[in-house]
Each structure stands twice: as C-alpha cells, then as structure tokens.
Design a protein around this nucleic acid. Sequence first.
DNA 1: TCGATCCTGTAG
DNA 2: CTACAGGATCGA
Length: 270
Amino acid sequence: MPELPEVEAVVRRLQEACRGAEIHSAHVERPGTLAPHGPESLDRLAGARISGVRRRAKYIFLECGPGLCLQVHLRMTGNLYVLPDYRFRPHTARVWFRLGDGRVLVFDDSRALGRMQLVSDAEVLALEASLGPEPLEAGFSPAVLREILRGVKAPVKPVLMDQKRIAGIGNIYSSEALWHARVHPQQAAGTISPRKVGLLHQAIRDVLQHGVVSAYAEYTQPGTVADSESFGVAVYGRQGEPCLKCRRSIERIVQGGRSSFFCPACQREK
DNA sequence: TCGATCCTGTAG
DNA sequence: CTACAGGATCGA
C-alpha cells in the first residue's frame, strides 16, 4: 500500500488514536518482522508511553520515551492501526501491543515484508541523514530538485524512487508525477530541461499533496474519494487505456524490475 | 544496474 | 498454473 501519502495518513491516524497511550505488553506473532533482532527485543516497551508519532520518508517513528523509539517500515502491505480489543486482530497481525486502556495497536502485514525495530536516538539520526529531502517540505525547491538530478545518467523514474535522493516517492507517484510533467520515465535524469524540472517539481508536490488528502480521507470517510478525473490515478495500471490528456494508449514498460506507465505522445524523451 | 530475495495474496 | 504486487537490500 504505502508511499509517502499513505504512510502520512497512517501517522495522522495514529497521532489521534494512540498518542499518549501506554504500552502494556508486546506480542510477536512473527519474529522475522523484528529482524535482525529477536522477539524479546520489544520487551523494553512494556510500560512505555507513546509520546509522539512521526514520519520520515516511508518510515514511521513511534517515540516511546527518552532514547526509545519504535521504527516501523510498512514495505508493500504493512499497516498500523488501533483496534478496540486484541481479539479483533486479523491473522495477518505480525506484532501487536496491548495498550493501557485495553485497546490494541496492530502491525498488520499480509506479505510479512515489513519491519519493526527498537532504535536509539543515534540510529534514528543516522537513518534520517541517509535519506533525501522531504518533497512536501518548504526546503524542497525547484533548485533542490535540479541539484538532485544534475549530472545523473540513470533514467529519471528510478531516480525519483531512490530514497537516498528524494524521500517518500514510490512506484505509483513517480509514474504519476512524470505524466503530469510530460517527462518520459526513461529520460536520463541529468538531461531534463530546467523548464521541465520545474514542472516535475510542481507535479511531485501536487500528486503527493493530493495523495495525502485522499489517503487520509479514505480512513475518515471510506469510499468518499471519487475524484479520479483531475488528480486521481492518471497512468498507473492503465496500460492500453486512453491518456487523459490526448487519448493515446498508455504504455507499460519495466524499469529496475518495476512497472512504469506513461503516455508515448505526451511524454517524449528529449 | 540487473536479478534474486524476502513473503503472501489475488487476478488471469 | 503463472504473473504480478504502492519496497528495499544484497551480491554478481
């Protein structure tokens, strides 16, 4: 499920649902979820209070007291949410926490690719330093994007998905942003004109910002998000269907083992 | 930079 | 049955 917008929506929901909550106990159904640590690594959380929840790139940090932070990565199918009672947890709950008030915080992950680990302040700092800038923050200017792409020979699409270069963009939003900016996914990143870099910068912010709003609305009012015309999915998964701008057939190619979708007319390589 | 790998579920 | 999945890492 999750790229930056979906992770952000999870964080906002958790802030409402469990900030200030006490962790009564941790229960590990699948030890691999805590790799490279063991199932006993969460024992230190008993009695801790969740003082804050925040996001960086696609990581979620649950701050659980001084120097104690639960770092979560949802990968492909992970999800974090609070249920009223532990008996309601699904069989795909890999780790769950009983909260002081009887509710349960569930790490649900059908594919079990997600990871969770307790980390120190220093580890959090090191991780954050290894990640690229947050595209929705004020510091992410067109000049910053120009600098990221400058001189890079690799195709732009995998570059946008490289968390060390820019944080939070995944397979869907990269295709979407490139379509909005009319940039071909295989164009060498460093050869994109300054004008198009400007368009790409705006497109990245627009698709992510819209994604945050609709992902959060999806939790609040499921099924309400019906605006697939202006800013929903324009190209992702739409191979063979008409481009929303020019009606040409959307194409699918594979880059770095991942599907890319684009309009061969609107997004020309140059 | 490609392919394999970690896993399970679903669509064709 | 095979293909594919909104992620990331590792070694060739």
